[in-house]
Amino acid sequence: MPPVFRFAPSPNGFLHLGHAYSALLNFDRARETGGRLLLRIEDIDATRCRPDYEAAIYEDLAWLGIAWETPVRRQSEHLAEYRAALEKLSALGLVYPAFESRAEIARLVAAREADGPWSRDPDGAPLYPGHAKSLSADERTRLIDSGAPYALRLDMAAACQHLAGLTWQELGEGPDGELGIVPARPEAWGDVILARKETPTSYHLSVVVDDALQGVSEVVRGQDLFHASSVHRLLQTLLGLPEPAYRHHALIRDEAGRKLSKSSGSTGLRELRSAGTSPAGIRQLVGLDQVSLGVSKTPP
Rank of each mutant, 00 (worst) to 15 (best):
R107F: 05
P9T: 03
A228E: 08
C49V: 00
L39A: 06
A20I: 09
W118A: 05
Y150L: 05
E243H: 14
L163C: 13
V192Q: 05
H249A: 13
I66L: 10
C49F: 00
D254S: 12
E100V: 07
V219K: 00
D138P: 00
H78C: 04
A188L: 14
P183K: 07
G257T: 10
C160D: 02
I252Q: 14
V220M: 07
A67T: 15
G174A: 08
L166K: 06
G268A: 15
D60Y: 12
A164S: 15
L239S: 01
A62Y: 07
H232C: 03
L163W: 13
L234G: 05
R83V: 07
A55Y: 01
E139F: 08
S134K: 13
L39M: 09
Q223V: 14
Y246F: 11
K262L: 00
R112Y: 10
P11Q: 11
L194A: 08
Y128I: 04
D45G: 07
T298A: 15
V209N: 00
T267G: 07
P117W: 02
S136N: 10
E42R: 00
Q161S: 14
L89V: 04
V286Y: 12
L86V: 04
D289A: 14
E81N: 10
L37Q: 01
S119F: 06
V231A: 07
Y96S: 12
D155K: 04
P11I: 04
K133F: 08
L61S: 11
F14R: 15
I44S: 04
F27N: 11
A256W: 06
A8D: 03
E42W: 01
L25P: 08
R140N: 03
G180R: 10
I41L: 01
S292G: 07
S266L: 09
L37S: 00
E69A: 13
L285E: 11
I57L: 06
I252L: 15
G172C: 10
Q161W: 07
L135D: 02
D191A: 09
S76D: 06
R153G: 08
E173H: 09
W189Q: 05
L179H: 15
L269W: 02
L234F: 03
P3L: 02
T199I: 14
R50Q: 15
Y128T: 04
S136K: 07
